[in-house]
């Protein structure tokens, strides 16, 4: 188990502030944050490549805050892999074993076993310069795994990998985590968190804003920043009031019916793009329905994304079938309907 208690580090123009984080054994934790949010610095603090100003790092109950880098049992996979360019793939993987003065036969057996595990057995005699990003990633992972770390720290592992290869790497990371190894993976990519994480955290300006399981963080973000990271594009500043026992939220341009509950007087209303139904006529099947005009239609990862101007700009996802059925095009008037249960106030 990894536990960070009140970790702070000040660099003058940037600081990590009061970081508290707990990762259970065997858990795959993804820390999301923009570039410069402090993700990599946090990993380096855990690995011992930097020292915190205050706070404590525990790994499996052991205080490793002042422990030597070499004895921490934290395996770090760097963003661009940090493969030693003067060594072959075999020698890269064997590097930590040679450091330990392991017997040559054992080294060979261990390197082969690990290379087989990560599907790079055929690359062992190759120089590293001509390897692809995905292959280098596997070498870096194998090299870390032979050290039998208590936790693997992954710094943006997909950043330098071509999109078609990312599925393979994700599969590899799942496989390693499946072996019971705890993983802390930092990234700016929300989709990686959705696909891999048991738990996620969001870091911004050196502070962790929210942690939890992906479902709770992405469906109930604590603020606008986390909402953006969760892929939520529709959020509007609203005033909230009670009228005749019903709760309403009102932005400058639209009025919304909220589900029953207790709300602050002001807040941010958020609505996921895939929770909105499109129609050409006003719908009564949902308790919220607003009229707008399609301003832009773009291809999206699956289907299409539409921007609809209702006074507020809405981001809506639609399938190709919907697009054809409704003959959607820019300039067309449409109705957006959604259930009040889909609305969140933060």
């Amino acid at each position: 188990m990894l536990e960070l208690r009140n970790i702070s580090k000040d660099y003058g123009n940037f600081s990590l502030k009061d970081i508290n984080l707990s990762i259970s054994p065997g858990e795959y934790f993804i820390l999301l944050g923009r570039s410069g949010a402090g993700k990599s610095i946090l990993l380096e603090l855990i690995a011992g490549l930097r020292s915190p100003d205050t706070g404590t790092v525990y790994l499996n109950g052991r205080d490793i805050t002042d422990e030597k880098i070499q004895r921490r049992k934290t395996g770090m996979v760097f963003q661009d892999y940090a493969i030693f360019p003067h060594l072959t793939v075999f020698d890269n993987i064997a590097y930590p074993l040679r450091i330990k003065h392991m017997h040559r036969d054992k080294i060979s057996a261990e390197v082969n076993r690990m290379a087989k595990n990560v599907n790079i057995l055929h690359l062992l005699n190759r120089k590293t310069n001509d390897l692809s990003g995905g292959e280098k990633q596997r070498v870096a992972v194998a090299r870390t795994l032979v050290t039998s770390p208590d936790i693997i720290l992954l710094d943006e592992p997909m950043a330098s990998i071509d999109a078609p290869m990312r599925d393979d790497v994700r599969q590899l990371l799942r496989k390693i985590n499946g072996m019971g190894i705890t993983m802390l993976h930092v990234t700016h990519d929300y989709s990686e968190a959705v696909r891999l994480a048991h738990k996620v955290g969001v870091i911004h300006n050196g502070r962790i804003l929210q942690t939890g399981d992906p479902e709770s963080v992405f469906s109930r973000p604590v603020n606008k920043f986390v909402a953006r990271f969760a892929g939520i594009r529709n959020y509007y500043r609203v005033k909230i009031y009670n009228k005749a026992g019903n709760m309403y939220a009102e932005s400058d341009n639209n009025k919304y019916i909220l589900p029953e509950g207790t709300y602050p007087d002001n807040g941010l209303l958020i609505l996921k793009s895939d929770s909105i139904n499109l129609s050409l006529t006003e719908q009564t099947t949902h308790d919220n329905c607003i009229r707008g005009k399609v301003t832009e239609i773009n291809r999206a990862e699956s289907g299409y994304e539409l921007f609809v101007d209702t006074g507020d700009i809405y981001h809506v996802l639609a399938s190709k079938k919907d697009l054809e059925k409704l003959s959607l095009k820019a300039g067309l008037s449409v109705f957006l309907s959604f259930s009040s249960d889909e609305l969140r106030i933060i």
Binding site: E44, A47, G48, L49, I69, Q70, T74, G75, M76, F78, D80, A82, F84, Y95, P96, I99, K100, R143, T144, T147
Partner: peptide
Amino acid sequence: PERLEKAAMNLGA
């Protein structure tokens, strides 16, 4: 690159 040196130390050197 400094990260190569960091990687070496992280690997036990």
